[in-house]
């Protein structure tokens, strides 16, 4: 993973390395570059299929209902509810250790799309169905990412 303070350039792929060894190129992902451009502007964008009216995960390439590949990016409300969560005590790597314990989970957005994310206890603790609001923070790897803060 990139440690730069700028977002990873998914449209051109990521070089995966293990120590000095080049392991290969993580698949370029032009279908998500607009999502990450939105994050830079602190906007949460989702895919939307005008054909079937479905809101879809930002990675979607085709609409599972109608098969359309003409998906557009639309701004989401940024509001949702906690669907599931886990408080991580054993961190993923040394980079995350200083933040432990931290909460990661799945949020169900008002639009019906679920996003995997960091959940931040706000004025209320993290629990299932707690209302959350999107925010944008630079997390441990130096990337600006959408996170969700528990609302009162």
């Amino acid at each position: 993973m990139s440690n730069a303070a700028t977002p990873a350039d998914w449209a051109n792929g990521l070089h995966l390395t293990a120590g000095p060894y080049f392991l290969g190129l993580y698949q370029p992902s032009p279908e998500t570059k607009d999502f990450w451009a939105g994050v830079e502007l602190r906007e949460l964008l989702l895919k939307f299929c005008a054909e079937s009216g479905n809101w879809l995960h930002p990675k979607r390439i085709v609409c599972p209902d109608c098969g359309s590949d003409k998906l557009e990016m639309r701004r989401a409300s940024g509001r949702g509810k906690v669907y599931s969560f886990s408080e991580v005590h054993r961190a993923a790597s040394p980079a995350f250790a200083k933040s432990a314990p931290y909460v990661i989970g799945v949020v169900r957005l008002e639009e019906g799309v679920h996003l995997f994310t960091r959940i931040i206890p706000g004025s209320a603790p993290v629990k299932i169905d707690a209302p959350v609001q999107v925010d944008f923070r630079v997390l441990e790897l130096g990337q600006l990412l959408p996170v969700f803060v528990v609302a009162a």
Binding site: L14, T32, V88
Partner: peptide, 21 residues
């Protein structure tokens, strides 16, 4: 690698989502 790993997820934490529900 784009939508999960940068949040600091671990294998137990991924399964924990199922456990939670």
């Amino acid at each position: 690698l784009q939508f999960e790993a940068p949040y600091g997820c671990t294998t137990p934490a991924l399964y924990a989502q199922f456990a939670c529900r």
